[in-house]
Nucleic acid binder design. Structure first.
Lengths: 338, 338
DNA sequence: CGCTGTGTGTGTATCGATATACTCCTGAGC
DNA sequence: GCTCAGGAGTATATCGATACACACACAGCG
């Protein structure tokens, strides 16, 4: 491997001058700068990051830890975050936590910990207490899957409000027998702990509140987070008493499954039942029927995340911020009466 | 920061003994091992990866570079690769190249280069020559988007064969006016260079070959790789002379767009036209209509990739292998005549 | 009894880049 | 003519973990 020392020899200067010429940390005369750069080209020199970061204690890389990449929502979120950090001049690596406590601890603790200058994590498995403890050791921004209490930088989705809006939309469109897919019950909501974390609870809360306010009837079904789970929930709802005429799904992914599951039983959307999702993933626009969905302001979420993490890296003791981004409901065919 | 030296002092041994106790690289008596581990716990010691990898020249991390995570296919592929490497005991980080030459060079060269022990790259922008040159400097497995010539480990999809099978399926189902979506022409195929690389060319080749053999007529449309592009292509095909009755889309993503675009013009799948995709992404099963697709053996692809990279890391001068995985055609509603 | 071998542990040099303190030189100012 | 500021470059120590050579005790063996 060719080192800075080799470049220095080739250029007839000291290693330190090579370092200064390359990083610009200290001034170097124009002439020697050129000589150095030529030597670098000739030898094909590349800086050794391990050595640099050992010395500097920083790596210039931020980690992005998401539960899985095999998801409409998280793959898109990771993509947007990467792009935003890149525009801010920060390199990124993406890590999957498999929605497990261990995976999330790994993102914090693992050997790679001191390889990141900061971490963005969509935490599902860790408790608030754990997150608080860990956040003292490394700059971190938590993405909104938990309710936290101003102890760590936190950017969250408008879970309750968005769910309320979605549910109201169903009622406005004339639905009277509502259902929620992605949550197992409508009583004692806060006692339920799902593997997917608190976002689902908050969305269920919003749904339940509007149902209560309007004195509507509602049922609930839960079988997981995948499209297949959506299919199962649809079947479940159809074989149970009176079928719903409006379904709120806590994610678009579930909604896709639900629509598919309904179709399997000859139930048409929107003719027989209206469906609303949450997240407004790209596919919502292209499915048949296209899916009405709650669209959180992803750009805002990503922008805030980058901003907060950069701020925290710069000043580790800054006061933690808690931001909730805005949303809008994008209405499409799945709630448009024919 | 607490270092190995601190642990050594706490445990009353030398740093070297701590290292040996933790890595197991050299034997340590059971008693001192326990003492060391207790000291580690008490102080909350974590190894500094920068120092370790500077000394060892290895990091235990492999990089996975894909064009984008905002894609049905690549996000799933990245997910599977991460899982497979993890099962093989290797940590991974995922990087996006934005399908650009620069992004791919970055994956190789960027400061983080010497931070990976190996690289898996789905290269679209680099030339064969460049890949060959770079592959001499770092263990790399190229995922099948290029035709390479046994100069680098390479795992590829059954692009030509799969496309042929898909096209034959359309003919068998009675289609006579075929179309391909995702490729701009059917003459001088090999002269076309798409931003998406050679996979599209190969799929077009398979399509064109079968069309030729059967003396069928065919048209072509291209507008990019997204679902929106699929919509545009559908519109394009419908407004141009006689509409096709069978469409082969070079990716499922395009196919989703095409089906949607057709629906926008009142053309129904499969009633009026049959559609086949390629990749068999998860959504293919859940769309309405569900999408017939060429399903490459992803498990095989991922397994081979892990195997080849591990092998190359172990023995850098091993003879390069070129593997093409198998495929099957999964027939669903989009090609099932009502 | 001396000699080799094995099992444990320690000291030292090293990986490559860079922070820091230092030297040298040129030119301005009085 | 002399001092002093500051620009350009260099020597050295250091970040933390570990490869390597070495030390030492004790067992087995001829």
């Amino acid at each position: 491997m060719v080192t800075m020392r080799d470049v220095a020899a080739e250029a007839g200067v000291s290693p330190m001058t090579v370092s200064n010429a390359l990083t610009g940390r200290r001034p170097v005369s124009e002439a020697t700068r050129r000589t150095v750069l030529e030597a670098v080209d000739r030898l094909g020199y590349q800086v050794n990051v391990a050595a640099r970061s050992l010395r500097q204690g920083r790596t210039g890389v931020v980690g992005i830890a998401v539960p899985t990449l095999d998801s409409h929502y998280y793959s898109r979120l990771a993509h947007r975050l990467v792009r935003a950090f890149s525009q801010a001049g920060l390199a990124t690596v993406v890590e999957e936590t498999h929605a497990s406590r261990e995976g999330e601890l790994a993102a914090f603790r693992d050997s790679r910990l001191n390889a990141y200058d900061g971490l963005v994590i969509a935490a599902l498995g860790l408790t608030e207490r754990e997150i608080n403890a860990l956040s003292r050791e490394v700059p971190v921004v938590v993405l909104g899957e938990q309710e936290l209490h101003q102890t760590v930088d936190h950017v969250s989705m408008p879970n309750v409000d968005g769910a309320e809006a979605a549910t109201r939309l169903l009622l406005e469109r004339g639905c009277r027998r509502l259902a929620i897919v992605g949550f197992p019950t409508l009583t004692d909501l806060e006692d339920v702990t799902l593997p997917e974390g608190a976002a689902f609870v908050l969305r269920a809360e919003g749904f339940a509140r509007v149902v209560r306010e309007h004195g509507a009837t509602a049922s609930a079904a839960y079988a997981g987070v995948t499209q297949a789970a959506g299919v199962a929930c649809a079947r479940d709802l159809l074989t149970r008493g009176e079928a719903p005429d409006g379904i709120f799904c806590v994610t678009d992914t579930l909604a896709f499954g639900v629509v598919r599951g309904l179709a399997d039983h000859g139930v048409r959307v929107p003719d027989d039942v209206l469906v609303v999702g949450f997240d407004d993933v790209e596919d919502a626009e292209f499915h048949i029927p296209s899916l009405t969905s709650v669209a959180p302001d992803l750009e805002g979420l990503v922008g805030q995340t980058v901003h907060l993490l950069a701020r925290r890296i710069a000043s580790p003791r800054a006061l933690p911020q808690d931001v909730t981004v805005s949303y809008r409901v994008v209405e499409r065919e799945s709630t448009t009466r024919p």
